[in-house]
Simulated scan of single mutants.
Amino acid sequence: MTELEGLELRWIDIPLVSPFRTSFGTETARRVLLVRAVTGDGEGWGECVAMDEPVYSAEYVEGAAQVIRDFLLPRLGRGADPWKAEEAFRPVHGHPMAKAAVGAALLDVWLRARDTSFGEFLGAVRPAVPSGVSVGIMDSVPELLDAVDGYVAEGYRRIKLKIEPGWDVAPVRAVRERHPDLPLQVDANTAYTLADARHLARLDPFDLLLIEQPLPEDDIAGHAALARLVATPICLDESITSAAIAADAIVRGATSVVNIKPGRVGGFLEARRVHDVCAAHGVPVWCGGMLETGIGRAANVALAALPNFTLPGDTSASSRYFATDVTEPFVLEDGALLVPTGPGIGVAPDEAVLRALTVRTEFLPAGPAR
């Protein structure tokens, strides 16, 4: 059995082509933690989707690096098996984004050694996935309309609008009036409470695909109550941290659509379980995004090719966020992204670009499992 030689942590700073504003803040650049697993069979890459500050979730870049260094790698030892790694990490409570980054790197090298792609391994059923785009909160409705017009012209098949109290009904109405037949959805990132139910019901006339995560992530009961008060389907994102939680939320009537983010559920093995649970309950899923570089995007595109991903996700082209990606850029073709077919994630970082963006690196040698 191939042994793990160690993990390289690499911090990069990559600027965004334009500011991205949500209900919890504005990003102009991404501080990204990349994980490279080194084994006797080669290397594999994973991307930690934690933000620089703990505003989307409790995880953040430096915290994730510490968890990998002090708690995950010591439990991993020299083992490079992705399933055994998942089991070894269970005693560490929380930190799914750190676990997912290491797990993706291990899965990448494991699949590369077997000349198998992520898509083939996960169970992809289509060669390309329809691409949607997430549009941040803007300073004005005309600015929003210009942005949406541009994305529609590029060929994106679905538009998602970020909303918050004070920026919801008016911008949604304006976009719907401009684009009557456009597949359209909104994302609140937990910005509302159940007391806002009557206000959120004002979005019902706009024929939205869904309202994503309107209430706090721990309020499953509140989402179930809201689903009875609005006609637009409720989709859960931050609330869904495992396949078991997904099943519970579905049974309780809190969600009729699920956004799957591998980093949020602890990795691609659990993400596939969430997909399967939702499929068994007849609940469609789509693949969310966390402004990933090409490393994280490649694996997400493969995941989004599974059969129950029936709605366009946030698997946008590289140019949506970055002037220069760390891998060969993902390009929109007829409103879709091609699923990589090469071994592992199917892409590799451009060494020159990676060097230019790197802030620092740290190599963590593997040792005996504790």
Rank of each mutant, 00 (worst) to 15 (best):
W110T: 10
H179Q: 03
A80S: 14
P96D: 08
F118D: 11
L144A: 05
R158C: 06
V92I: 15
V129D: 03
V148A: 09
V152C: 10
R78T: 07
Y156C: 11
P91A: 06
T190H: 13
E86G: 11
G150F: 10
E87V: 14
R112F: 13
A101C: 13
A153W: 08
V169S: 08
P142F: 01
V141A: 01
P171I: 02
V148N: 09
D187Y: 06
G150P: 02
I68M: 04
R173P: 00
K99I: 07
E177S: 00
L184T: 04
I137K: 09
Y156G: 01
D70P: 03
L182R: 04
L76D: 00
A124D: 06
H93R: 14
P82E: 13
V169N: 09
W167Y: 12
G94D: 06
Q185R: 15
G77L: 08
A113T: 03
P183T: 11
D115S: 13
A124Y: 07
L111I: 08
L76K: 07
G150R: 15
G103D: 12
A174M: 03
E177N: 06
D181V: 00
A101F: 13
A98R: 02
R176F: 00
E120D: 14
L111V: 10
Y156A: 12
M97T: 11
K84T: 10
I159D: 07
A124N: 07
G79H: 10
R114M: 04
N189I: 01
P130T: 02
P127M: 09
H93M: 08
G123P: 07
